[in-house]
Design a protein around this nucleic acid. Structure first.
Lengths: 243, 243
DNA sequence: GGCCACAGCCTGTCTGACAACCTGATTAAT
DNA sequence: ATTAATCAGGTTGTCAGACAGGCTGTGGCC
């Protein structure tokens, strides 16, 4: 992973979506407002109508606009939203990122409690294997940071699966993959600071222990302990890296 | 609200999206697979290519497929997902619905703690006004249930706003609006059972009190108390209503 | 004043076309 | 025989134009 992936020029529909959503976010478009006709937008953006239609179809997919044949397309009220999506820009700002982690952690903590109620012996074995991997990773000077990061991720996934909550898993995967670079870089730094890595592993070991004991309240407490601390560590380290 | 909204015949792109996503969910399409060409899909579905393109553009928007010029469109790995969206079917099944509520409650509980740290006098005044509205709604035989339901909703929104977490607000609004009918019908039943409504109000009063005192841990506990209980009440009542 | 028909606009869909691009096979050159 | 250049075919991205079906407001008619 030496080279960053080249960002190819965004497609025309993407740009139009971005333009419209930013207009909406800026308050220039408000719920109930009618969008200009597709033809009008096409000429305004200097593209074909099919391009505008693709853009609008994406917004319709999210429930942001609703269109009526023969009338036009309208900005839908917020409660019509059918998808939760975060603009990539949010993952750049430290403050926003921490807020997103709050969301994620809220969900993780919740499923940890469910996992404590549903865990089987096999589940516990898998979690302990992940803990073992973490401990071994400490000794690995070369790929240790990567291995640790990957193991942390897997632990969350296993917990979500044990809790049998696919939605939670989807949600967590989505958030995590979006902030993966940030999380990874900080995780790497923390792992190099061996004492922090050891602390993190112990926290997670306590979490697994709580799940093993089948105590949802304890699992919740341990999950909060670890993931809130992890967010705090991220906050501490991240401000060294970026603005 | 006497008449149910008529479901207008879904548009062709919608149907194709549904078809493709169901194929994906059924495992017929797996990450890395190439979709048939747009032309092929068009003839297969018996529609124009523009329709297929709109469908695929929606899937691309969610990061479910990625397309490369001159090559084709491919199912992306799950970690490329950029949106969290729930199929409407999930809101029908009681079990799924409760899992979604778990997600929501996890987030709500988290922001309640943040709200306790950020609340101002004005925020508290707004919350107490909402509580007052709830108490008054009990006496209203005609619209009491509706008023109570609306007030509960507003309380969550205010809390999310106080916590200054727009993402959480969006998330909660999205989930709530999707399960609004279910929530509403059960809320109405519970409100008619006056003793349950009184319990719910007291729980929320405690929550507001905790936020007022600025104690995040207490706020979390009270939030959990109320929203988990509310979910439980929903579970108890909902199985009377549906399968 | 009230009712009706109609023109004009809008979305949804279809068709055909072309540019840019990629892949794999074929061909040419060494 | 191996390598390099070429090319044909398929694919996505975009464009232009067309038509059906639906809605709205206007103007004429009763």
């Amino acid at each position: 992973m030496k080279f960053k992936s080249v960002e190819r020029s965004p497609s025309l529909p993407e740009e139009i979506v971005a333009s419209l959503t930013s207009a909406l976010h800026a308050g220039e478009l408000r719920p109930g407002d009618r969008l200009p006709s597709e033809q009008a937008l096409a000429t305004e953006f200097g593209v074909a109508r099919t391009v505008v239609r693709e853009a609008i179809s994406q917004l319709k997919y999210d429930g942001i606009v609703q269109s009526r044949v023969g009338v036009g397309a309208f900005i839908a009220p917020p409660q019509e939203r059918t998808a939760f999506r975060i603009s990539p820009a949010c993952f750049q700002k430290r403050k926003e990122l921490l807020k997103l982690l709050r969301l994620r952690n809220g969900v993780v903590i919740e499923v940890a409690a469910d996992a404590a109620l549903a865990r089987t012996k096999r589940d516990i074995a898998r979690m302990e294997a992940i803990l073992k991997e973490m401990r071994e990773a400490i000794g690995d000077r070369e790929h240790g940071a990567e291995r640790h990061f990957e193991a942390e991720r897997q632990l969350i996934h296993v917990i979500a699966k044990v809790a049998d909550n696919e939605h939670a898993l989807n949600f967590i995967v989505m958030i995590d993959s979006q902030i993966a670079e940030k999380l990874r870089s900080v995780a790497v730094k923390n792992t190099k600071a061996t004492e922090l890595a050891a602390v993190a592993i112990e926290e997670q070991a306590h979490l697994v222990e709580a799940i093993k004991s089948g105590d949802p309240v304890a699992a919740r407490d341990q999950a909060r302990q670890h993931y809130d601390n992890a967010a705090q560590r991220l906050a501490d380290r991240a401000d060294l890296a970026d603005v």
